[in-house]
């Protein structure tokens, strides 16, 4: 037996689990090899030291501490315990269905015709004269134009009108407080191709009408009341809806010099931007945003 081999048998030797042949070979080697004999003695001494170690008595408050920890569950533990209690399990299609329903509910809530809370009450009251504010949400009820498009241009009785913002025509002249600029009319163009849209905006710009881009599909058009008939003529080339119905009459807004129309186009994230970018004169308009301000020029 080689010296390197002896040490691999020490544990079996100590446990007395060596076979007869291995036992004889090991003991013969240890008797003739002082180095391995010393290693074996040290091995035995080490085992004796380890086995002589006394175990420590556990602290008396170990069990009460366990109960205290069990009583003091963290938020995560409670949530996890609830999940485990419910034996909650979801398949991927079920989870997808719940997610879809949640998103649909959020969309319906957002586009609900019911009155929504005023989101700028305190801020608008603090505005200084002439201060420009870019609201996060458009002050135009987006469902309004969809409503009239399904109702032959007439506002349905079950729909709440734009009572959150007053029409510019209804503002009291003496009211100097900043007010939310609201369009006098809403126009929805359901179908329009790229070339027709470019042509529409170019004709408006040629007439020196002001175009404010609110979003990729929503624009504010400012034009003289005297040109309302031309506005109708431009719209007449497309399949469009108009609200209120009174705006179809050329007498509409006679008390004002400038009318404001909110123009909604088919949703296309790139189409309107490309259309306007194509026209150099329209480029600055891309930077304009809907604003909250006093607008004396819009009053008669």
């Amino acid at each position: 037996m080689q010296c390197t081999e002896t040490q691999t048998l020490f544990t079996d030797f100590a446990d007395n689990t060596l076979g007869r042949e291995e036992l004889h070979a090991l003991t013969d080697h240890l008797l003739g090899c002082p180095t391995c004999a010393l290693e074996w003695r040290e091995f035995q001494q080490t085992l004796n030291l380890v086995h002589s170690l006394e175990t420590h008595a556990p602290p008396a408050d170990l069990l009460p501490g366990i109960h205290a920890k069990l009583a003091h569950k963290g938020v995560f533990d409670r949530a996890w315990a609830l999940v485990e209690t419910l034996n909650f399990s979801l398949s991927i299609p079920a989870a997808a269905a719940i997610f879809t329903i949640a998103m649909l509910a959020g969309f319906l809530l957002k586009t609900s015709p019911l009155e929504q809370p005023n989101i700028f009450p305190s801020r608008s009251a603090q505005l200084q004269q002439g201060e420009v504010l870019t609201p996060r949400r458009l002050p135009i009820a987006q469902n309004a134009m969809f409503a009239v498009s399904h109702n032959g241009g007439q506002q349905g009785g079950d729909l709440v009108p734009l009572n959150r913002t007053a029409l510019a025509t209804q503002l009291a002249p003496e009211n100097d407080a900043p007010h939310l600029l609201s369009p006098d009319m809403h126009v929805l163009i359901e179908h329009i191709d790229h070339d027709s849209q470019v042509l529409l905006f170019r004709e408006m710009l040629d007439r020196n009408w002001q175009i404010h881009r609110i979003s990729t599909a929503l624009f504010l058009i400012h034009f003289p009341q005297a040109e309302l008939e031309n506005f109708h003529e431009l719209l007449g080339r497309h399949h469009s809806a108009l609200m209120p119905a009174a705006a179809a009459e050329i007498e509409f807004g006679r008390d004002k010099q400038i009318l404001t129309a909110a123009l909604r186009l088919p949703s296309s994230p790139f189409f309107p931007r490309r259309a306007l970018s194509w026209d150099r004169r329209a480029a600055p308009l891309l930077r304009s945003r809907f604003f909250l301000t006093r607008s004396p020029t819009h009053r008669a």
């Binding site: 691999t8 544990t11 080490t46």
Partner: peptide, 13 residues
């Protein structure tokens, strides 16, 4: 387990 224990004991020694 036995071989690991033997190595561990030798290391401790």
């Amino acid at each position: 387990v036995k071989s690991k224990l033997n190595r561990a004991r030798l290391a401790l020694k």
